[in-house]
Design a protein around this nucleic acid. Sequence first.
DNA 1: AAACACCACAACCGCGACTGC
DNA 2: GGCAGTCGCGGTTGTGGTGTT
Length: 369
Amino acid sequence: MGKGRAPCCDKTQVKRGPWSPAEDLKLIAFIQKHGHENWRSLPKQAGLLRCGKSCRLRWINYLRPDVKRGNFTIEEEETIIRLHKALGNKWSKIASRLPGRTDNEIKNVWNTHLKKRLALKSSESSADESKLESSITSSSSSSSESFLSNERPNLAKTSPVNEFNVQASQVTMTEKIVQESEKQVSNELTIITEDPKESSNSLSCVESNILNSNQIVAYKPEQELACPLTYLGLYDVDNTLQEVDKPNNLLEIPWESDYDFWKSLDNLGSFQSNEIQSEEFPASQSLHFGEEGVQDAEGMKWSQDFENEFGVVGETTESNKDQFLSKNYAVAPEMDHQILDFDDMTRPESELDFGYIQLWPSWPQNTSL
DNA sequence: AAACACCACAACCGCGACTGC
DNA sequence: GGCAGTCGCGGTTGTGGTGTT
């Protein structure tokens, strides 16, 4: 036996599993400041106990400013179906045609939704054919039953009628999409399979963004895309992407070495029990900044955005809180369905035993800020 | 209400491709 | 050209959420 492939990192020395908000912040802050020329060394430099690959994946699939979240539109699904037909499982190629969507996301959507839908559609159409055939060639009265039980046993036996109708309507939609899409397949193929160097005009510039995120090029549907962590504000893609590689005019995020950063977080926590409504900030954006308050407007805005995104704000609804916390982060059980309160969070015993927030500032726990 | 099954998606893994020396 | 280091892609897995029994 040979030596085998050297592991990309020491698995025993890195943290695995879901990313915490603190880790995300750390990664974003580092990349904003220094870019990501070397993923392998990035975690160490950024102070993250993560594999470089993991950091890269997290950035590309989730934290990148131009990543679009939310459900896929019909148009996007149409494009995926069309391109998958043309290209197969070339997820990165497909992603290059879908601004803001990552290959991983597309792959997931395909595997969980579109593939099944198309399979259903094809079995439906083949069933229709056999049904038609049997109606012509056979006088058997059980043809439709056998169609249901043989062609689509699970659906026929397990799905309620209304579910069947829903699925059928989805099939119809998919069918329509496929039919319309097929018209464009050949055109897409010629465009996509061209050498990118020779077809830079026809290819979406996003391809280079996703395929090689070191060379991020702006996609310009609206120029501004919502960031998953909107406390960073809306990204001007042009600027942001420029910043990633050449960090000029950075919006710097202070990190744990910055006392004020943690102070802000800590102050946010006390908002729950001691909310202050400011005239400058309407009720939905009201904040509590503790005794001293956050002194500068930028800090205020940052805190505001942070609250909005992390669900700390008083107006946080169950839905948006759940959407963010439970979906995007590993939330400690005791944190679930609670308003995030940094005051109540107990500090982990050791650095490796991370709680909800993994990295803690080294100020005394009960310091009155 | 508990147990189970299924689903959706984030994250991981391994390998091929690429690049610089 | 060979080698080592790194990146990026695509397949797979793990886990939390949701629906069903």
